[in-house]
Amino acid sequence: MRARPAKAAAALLLAATVTMQGASASSPAAGACKGTIYLTFDTGSQSQAALIAETLGRHHIKATFFLANEKTVRGDWSLDPSWAAYWKARAAEGHAFGSHTFDHVYWKRDEAGGRIAVKPQFGVHAGKQQTWTAEQYCGELRRVDARFRELTGRGLDPIFRAPGGHTSPNVLAAANSCGYSHVGWAPAGFSGDETASEAFPNALLLKRALDKLKDGDIFMAHMGIWSRKDPWAPANLEPLISGLEQKGFCFATLREHPDYASHFKK
C-alpha cells in the first residue's frame, strides 16, 4: 500500500514532462505575453546554483535573487570570495538582487520601542535569541549590500526578503527607514522545496504551480535545501519554466513588478 503514492507521483511527473516536451526555449515575444511571472531565488545550500543559472540563461530569463551568507555544499559560505565569480556573472546577466539578512536572521517577536527579537541562523550569534533596535536590523540588511559590492562592484536593489517570509510592523518599519521594501510571494508561488518530499513529491508541486500561477505572481524557490531528500530544482525548474512559456507567460525581475518598480527608481 505504501508504494501507491510514490507510483502516483511518478505518473504525474511523467505526464507533466511529456506534456512539456517540445516547448520553446525562449519566452513568448513581449507583445504576445498573456502575463508575467516573477521568479525569485533565495540562497540556501547552493547545491542548485549552477543548474539555476544555466536554466535561466538558456531560456533568456531574468530573475531576482535574495542573498544571505549561508553554509553551502562546498563547505564555504554563499557570500565568500569563492562565490564572487558566480555573483558577478549573474549581475552581468541583468538579474536583480535583494538582501535576505546576512546571517539569515529570523524574526521572533516585536518588542516595545520598535525593538525586534530575532534569532540568527548563522554567524557568531547563531541560534541565540537577541533583541535588536531598528538601526541594528538595518545594519544587518546593509551587511549583505556591503559584501555584494565587494564581490561584484555593485550594490543590491532596495528590496529584502525576511527569512521564512516572517515580517512584523517593527521589521517593516525598520527596513523602510533604511530604504528597503519587503518582497514575499504569491500563495501559488511557494515552490514547496522546503517541505518533505515524501509528503509533497515534485510532481505534485509542479502541477500545483502550473495550475495556479497567474499574471503578476511572485514565485519563490531556494538555491538548494539541505533537508529535502528529492531536490526540487533538478526535477521541476525546467518543466515549470517550459510549462509557463507554453501558457504564454513571460518573466521579469522585480524591477518591472508594478508593486516595486517605482521604489527602484527612488
Rank of each mutant, 00 (worst) to 15 (best):
A16G: 14
D76C: 05
D145M: 04
L244I: 02
T167E: 13
P120D: 13
C178I: 11
H182I: 04
F41E: 08
D110R: 01
D193V: 05
V105A: 02
R149N: 07
G155S: 11
G75C: 09
G98M: 05
K212Y: 02
E194M: 13
R154F: 08
T195D: 14
K119G: 04
L210F: 01
V105H: 02
E198Q: 11
G31W: 03
D80K: 00
G164R: 02
T195V: 08
P201C: 04
A146E: 15
P231I: 03
F122D: 13
G123Q: 09
G139T: 03
V144I: 10
I116E: 08
R147C: 09
A85V: 04
G192L: 04
T17V: 05
A50F: 04
F190W: 12
H125V: 03
W132R: 05
H59F: 15
E135K: 13
F65W: 04
P234F: 02
V124E: 15
W232N: 03
A30L: 12
L56D: 12
A49F: 01
N176W: 11
G22R: 06
A92D: 14
L206D: 05
A49I: 02
L79H: 07
F219S: 00
F190Q: 12
V171N: 05
V118T: 12
G165D: 08
D76Y: 00
F219C: 00
G243R: 02
I116F: 02
M220N: 07
A117M: 14
N69T: 05
H60K: 15
G189S: 07
E245N: 08
T167K: 07
P258H: 07
E135W: 01
G248C: 06
Y106E: 12
L13R: 11
K128C: 07
D230Y: 00
L240N: 04
H257N: 10
A92G: 05
A85M: 00
K128D: 13
F148H: 10
M223N: 06
G184H: 02
G75A: 08
G216I: 04
R255I: 06
G31C: 05
A196I: 06
G22S: 08
K119Y: 03
A92S: 12
E70H: 00
R147Q: 15
Q136Y: 01
T152F: 01
T17G: 08
L79S: 04
F102S: 06
L156C: 09
A9G: 06
S181M: 13
R255N: 10
G155C: 11
P169L: 09
A117G: 09
A134G: 14
S197A: 14
L12D: 09
T36F: 04
L56F: 07
S78A: 12
P169Y: 09
V124G: 13
D80N: 13
S26G: 03
T195A: 13
P5S: 07
